[in-house]
Design a protein around this nucleic acid. Sequence first.
DNA 1: ACAGCAATTGACAGCGCTGTCATTCAATGT
DNA 2: ACATTGAATGACAGCGCTGTCAATTGCTGT
Lengths: 335, 335
Amino acid sequence: MQRDKKPTLSEVAKLAGVSEITVSRALRGSASVSGKTLLKVEKAATSLGYLRNRLAGALAGGASNQVAVILPSLSNSVFADVLNGLEVRLEQAGFHPVLGVSNYDPQQEEQLIRNLLTWRPAGLVIAPSDLTKASHALLEGAGLPLVEIMDTDTTPIDMGVGMSQRGAGSRMAHHLIARGYRRMAYLGHDIVRDRRAAARRDGFCATLGKAGLALCASLTLPAQSSVALGRQGLAQLLSEASEWPDVVYFSNDDMAVGGVFHCMSQGIAVPDSLAIAGFNGLEIGQSLPVPLATIASHRTAIGKTAADCILDRLSGRHTETLADLGFTLIAGGTA
Amino acid sequence: MQRDKKPTLSEVAKLAGVSEITVSRALRGSASVSGKTLLKVEKAATSLGYLRNRLAGALAGGASNQVAVILPSLSNSVFADVLNGLEVRLEQAGFHPVLGVSNYDPQQEEQLIRNLLTWRPAGLVIAPSDLTKASHALLEGAGLPLVEIMDTDTTPIDMGVGMSQRGAGSRMAHHLIARGYRRMAYLGHDIVRDRRAAARRDGFCATLGKAGLALCASLTLPAQSSVALGRQGLAQLLSEASEWPDVVYFSNDDMAVGGVFHCMSQGIAVPDSLAIAGFNGLEIGQSLPVPLATIASHRTAIGKTAADCILDRLSGRHTETLADLGFTLIAGGTA
DNA sequence: ACAGCAATTGACAGCGCTGTCATTCAATGT
DNA sequence: ACATTGAATGACAGCGCTGTCAATTGCTGT
C-alpha cells in the first residue's frame, strides 16, 4: 500500500502538456475537447494512475452523485430488496447510495438525516419510520430531490413511492371474507415501531368491521419479525385463544411462514384446520409445499422507481409527486 | 423545499462574532474552545440551521468518514447480514457505508472500485467476486485501510476477515461421513460466479476423496441461489441420478430449504429417505419443522469485525492481517 | 485577402472548510 | 513587578477541482 499522495489534475495536465481545465473537461467527456488532446490526456492520466477526486469536484461544481438512503432495518429482507432496486438503478446512472439504518428509532433517524445531509448528496431516499419535527424540518429545508418510500398513506414532503399499506390489509380482509372465513385472528410483530405493519392491521380490521366482523384473537409480539417469532407466536396465540380461529392473518410473510411451520410440526392441516395469510410475497412463501396466501408488494420496483424519481428530477424531467405501485394478491393455497 | 444556498461557516462566524476557524473548532468539539464561545457558536449555528459541508471538510482536512463497501449481491441475505453488521459499527463511529454491488461481475467490480475510490473514502470493505488485475492494482495503490471479507482461503492485500469456505465444505463432509452417509450428492447454484460456493464444494469433495468416497451425483444450476431453485433442482437431480443418494449437500441454506420443501411435497422422509445439508445457518433453516443440518457462518460478525478493522486502523491501533471468525456446525435434524 | 463564426483552449477565481503557525491575554512563579 | 507559560483565538494559505468568461485557432464565404 503506497501512502504517497495521489496524482492530481495539474500533474496530468503538465504531463499531457495542456491546461488543468482541459484535462478536467476531457476526463468528464465534455464535447469541446478535440480527439487529439483527449487521447493525450487519457494517456497521461492512465500512465500516472490518476483518479479524480470527486470531493473536490463536487465542492467546486455542486453535483455530488451520491444519494443518501435511510432505511429502518436491513434484517428484514424487504428493505434489502428495496435497496437492491435502488442500487441497480443508481449504479446504472453512475450514482452511489450512502446508507443509513435507523432501527425504527426516530432519534437515530433524525441523526442520520442530519449526518447524511452534510455530505451534500444529490438526493435522499427514505423509508421513514417516524419523522421527528426536526427531521421534517431538515428534509423540507434540504432543497434536494427527496423520495419517501414504502407507503402512500401519507402525503409526501416532496415525492412518494410505494403502495397503500392500509389498502393491502383491507384487500386481504376482503379476500378472506370472500373465501368464507369468519373467525379471523391476527398475529403481528412489533407494531409500535413498524407503523406500516400497523397500517395493514388497521386496514384489515376496518374492513372486517364494515362486514360486521371482528378479530376473534390477536397477538402482537414486541420483537422484530422473523420466521421463528411467527412459529412461536402462533403456538402462543392458539393456546391462548378462547376459540379456534379459521384463519390467521400475519403481519408479514416471515411470520406467516413460521406459522406454516408450526402447523406442519403440529400436524395442523393448512388451510383446512387453519388457514394462513401473510404479506409481502417473499420467494420463500411461494416455494413452500403449499404456496402462501399473501399480497405481493413490489419492493424492488419501489427501489427502482425511487431512484428514477431522483434521477429524473436531477435531469430536470417532470416527476410525479406520488407513485402508487400497488400490490398483487396471491391467492396461494394456505387460505 | 427552499432552494436557497445553505448557510456557511463564515455566516455562522459572523453571527456569533468569532472567526471561521473558531466555529469550525467549536462544531467539531475541539477542546481548545471556551465554554462561552462554544455556546455562542452553537446558538448561531442552530439559529441559521447550519449544516456543515463535509465535502469541503474532507477536501481540506483529508478525513472522509465514508467507507466504501462492495458486495457481489444483495438478493442473498448473507450479504444483507454482513452489510447490517458493517452499518451498525460504522454508524456508531459516525461513519457511513457507500455501497456498490458487483453482481459477481469482475468488470463491474473493477468499475465500482474505481468509482468509489474517487470519493476518497476512509476505508474500503470488499467481498471480492473476482478481482481483475486492474482491480488489484487499484486496491494496492489506494493507500487506505482495506478489508477483504468472507473467506480466508486467499491472502488478503491488506486485511482479511472471514472464514475458510474450503474448511466449511470439508467440515460438513467429515460430519456426514461420521453420520454414516456414503452416497453423497451435491446440488449447487452458479458456481462459476460464486467462487466461495465453489470453494466449499471443493473442500467437500477433497475430504470425500480422502475417505475413498466420491459424489454419486452432482448438479450445478447456472442461476442465482434461491429456495425455488433448490426445490426445482432437487427434483431434477433425483430424476437424473443413476442411484438414489443418502444425502444431498446443497451450496447454501436457501437451496437446502428448497430441497426440504421438495421432499415435503413429495413425501420423501427427511432424513431417513434422504438427508439434507446446507450452509450458512440462516434463521429459516433453523425454524423448519426439522431444523436444517448446516454450518453457521458468522455473517453479522464478519461485517462488524471488518468495520472494526477499518476503524482501528484509522485510529492508529494495531490490527490483525487476517481474522478467521470460523464457523459452527449445526447438526440439526435433516442429516 | 479579410471579416465572421464555431471549435478549442486557457486564466482566474472561488467552492467551504481545516492545518499551521502566529497572536493575544490572563494566570503563574519568584 | 516582570518574565514565563498555557489557553483561546485568529490570519492565512491552500485542499483539487470546475464555472465563467476571455483568448486563440482554423475555417468559411465573398
